[in-house]
């Protein structure tokens, strides 16, 4: 099982702040994104160039390998301060 969280404009567009997905293992962030995008048109936002990814609260690239039990997050560039 994986928990995937969404923040900011991505959370708003997807109309959800988190989902849990079954996970077989040995996949990268890119693999997982491809599966999510199959869920429907609005999920295409995950392919936008400036979307950031964190695995277990650490920013990472889309080639990062995911392990079962990890927490993923997708979000737009940060704008605090």
């Amino acid at each position: 099982m994986l928990r995937i969280r969404f923040f900011g404009s991505i959370r708003e567009q997807l109309q959800t702040s988190s989902i849990d997905v079954e996970y077989a293992g040995e996949e990268t962030v890119s693999d997982l994104m491809a599966k999510l995008i199959e869920k429907g048109e609005r999920w295409l936002i995950l392919e936008e160039q400036d979307v950031l990814v964190a695995v277990n609260m650490t920013l990472c690239g889309k080639d990062a390998v995911i392990n079962s039990g990890d927490e993923l997050a997708f979000f737009p560039p940060v704008t605090g301060g």
Partner: peptide, 14 residues
């Protein structure tokens, strides 16, 4: 601290 916070700390403003 402010420069790095504004580009890495996960906050979003609406």
């Amino acid at each position: 601290i402010m420069d790095i916070l504004k580009t890495t700390a996960p906050f979003w403003k609406q």
